[in-house]
Design a protein around this nucleic acid. Structure first.
Lengths: 226, 226
DNA sequence: AGATTTCAACTTGTATACAAGTTATTAAAT
DNA sequence: ATTTAATAACTTGTATACAAGTTGAAATCT
């Protein structure tokens, strides 16, 4: 488990949840690894209560398995969950960008425009980290434009299953292609062209297609045996 | 708050979550109502810990608002949430039944067939409660057939927002129409006819369309003022 | 009477003690 | 040496004590 700095603004519970979630995403808490409420609370410097509540929440999201009186474990990667995450992201992103085409106000478009311009700026500078942040923000803005913020929160939660597989696969997509896709999505929204928007989103998501078979061979101990 | 019987098989935490959730769905815990961890734990006969964990979970689902050191309240009905729930249900149900058309095995179809036959049986008997149970099970079976069980769990959570509005509106759809729709969905799956399946699902969901304007006039205190 | 202060009664947040059950080690018996 | 039994060290589940903050009523002062 890697150290995560506690921010002054957050409660013990928020800190614990964030720290554990990040460790699962990054696989510093490995799939299948045993975790102990006591150990984690000692490591984070908070009591068992906030740690326990965070673990319950991650259990609810199927990221931690709890065996009462026996122990808790980081969930093994379940191929079905990963596939459901990919499936869900696709149908949500398409449906939402179509809504965004109908609903985008000039103000929404201005903000999206600004975001993409920044992405293009940092592309020149080769600043992958900034692009990563702007990427997340860009997709969130589309959900907000379509008045689907709650659904976006849900999307985030289920995407953790995909994120940790992506971490293992070290899958990276060329920033240039990503930023280019975003520019095209913005254009489609401006033109209110749903069909075009849908096509680009599909193409965009296909860039993140990964070979699970390959990954299972490399990290067999991380995957649930069907 | 109405009494919910504790089952011998469930933990204190499971009992508390189920009891509070049911009370919110049925509006026995009214939107806007103040709730206290102490009061609820006394009423349910469990300690604050499991009650608190349940409240945290419902807070995460936007059904309870927590103001630290001040109090917690059943969330007012937020029209945007309700609309997001309706939106989500529609795109999910359509995408999933299309998948089910591709993936249904003879065994899946046999089970769906049995379920619908039972619905038709209880329709004759005028047993609305049984039909309600079978209805829920029918939709879950379609998700399972499409290997989308995780997504179904998520659907349940967000649908609570819609359920409690439906409770207030006393919206009831004639059992005969519901069962008829289910028979048609089953046929579409058997025929692997995605287009037909989609059309029926859309028609089916439209039966539950409700007039929020009307409801806001009747229960203004239950709704969040935009 | 009206404004101000004090304080008691609440709230949730966190820490901790104990309950109940599992597991692995150790010791004893065969 | 092997099996069995006892036990110590863990686990999560639950209850409770206390910390920190809010609120409103009662008491006090002007």
């Amino acid at each position: 488990m890697k150290k995560v700095e506690r921010m002054s603004s957050e409660t013990a519970r928020e800190y614990a949840l964030r720290a554990i979630t990040e460790n699962i995403k990054s696989a510093d808490l490995e799939p299948g690894q045993a975790i102990s409420e006591n150990e984690i609370s000692a490591f984070l410097g908070v009591s068992r209560t906030p740690v326990r509540e965070s673990i319950q929440e991650l259990h609810k999201a199927a990221l931690i398995e709890i065996y009462p009186q026996r122990g808790s474990y980081v969930s093994l990667i379940n191929s079905q969950y990963v596939e459901e995450a990919v499936f869900l992201r696709k149908i949500l992103d398409i449906a939402v960008i179509e809504e965004a085409c109908d609903m985008a106000t000039p103000e929404d478009i201005k903000q999206l425009e600004e975001n993409v311009a920044l992405q293009e700026f940092y592309l020149e500078k080769d600043n992958t980290e900034k692009i990563f942040e702007l990427d997340n923000e860009f997709h969130r803005m589309i959900y907000v434009t379509a008045k689907k913020e709650t659904i976006h929160n849900m999307r985030q939660m289920i995407m953790i299953h995909f994120d940790r597989v992506r971490t293992l696969s070290m899958l990276t997509v060329k920033d240039k292609k990503i930023v280019g896709d975003h520019r095209l999505m913005l254009e489609a929204i401006k033109e209110k062209d749903k069909e075009k928007a849908k096509e680009i989103v599909e193409k965009h998501l296909n860039r993140y297609r990964l070979d699970q078979e390959e990954l299972i061979k490399t990290f067999p101990q991380y995957f649930e045996t069907a």
